[in-house]
Amino acid sequence: MDNKGWEKVQLARHPKRPYTLDYIERIVKDFKELHGDRFFGDDEAIITGFGKIGNETFAVIGQQKGRSTKENIRRNFGMPNPEGYRKALRIMKLAAKFKKPVLTLIDTPGAFPGIGAEERGQAEAIAKNLFEMAVLPVPIICVIIGEGASGGALGIGVGDRLLMLENSWFSVISPESCSSILWRTWDKKEIAAKALKLTAEDLLEQKIIDEIVKEPTDGAHENYDEIARTVKERVLDNLKELKKLSTDKLIEKRIEKYSKIGFYEEQT
């Protein structure tokens, strides 16, 4: 059966898929990682900091998975807690203060569903980021590099441009959870992946993303340098366009972009 959806989900989860730090290492010069949300702790599922991409200082924010079990425990498998979102917001506000653009790299199986996460307001932390990112007075470019699951991905995913790697996925829920809710079994994940229309091509058609970033022929995991170069080029090209706009215009266009998302019928 032809099922691009499930194919992309598997590629996005490939154990050798390049993660946020692999990109930072290759495209961000003088990267200074900054830690902590100043309220509770430092969430290592989200990396934040400043560095140079080309000649431009960026705030770089990205979800980070681990390669080994030990590192995955430290990174919580790339599932942020509220303090991760609050740290990201802190860095974005710093970027706004010093008029630096923001780059976010999205790669998460979802925000962490845990007792502590709920106690510390996972919902509030994500909501606040959407609210603040919508009107942040500097350009924001978001790139989905792997998995883009649900509110956990969107929590660092609101901006002027949303780019998506060819072999990544983005949806409101993971195919596994969707299967468990709508089919009442975990076994229909492939069917759910297809039904959710979660590939880059699907999302371009749905007018949710702005462009697809082409990966090396065998996938991003086969050539880190090449995909990093492409991402850098696409980010800088987009920034050049965005810098032509005044701050007011930038925000106006951003809100307008989100206003238009959705399909419905209006009978008169």
Partner: peptide
């Protein structure tokens, strides 16, 4: 799918 997700961003932006 993702169209549902994006309504979070849309309403928050407004």
């Amino acid at each position: 799918g993702a169209l549902s997700l994006m309504q979070m961003a849309k309403t928050s932006a407004k």
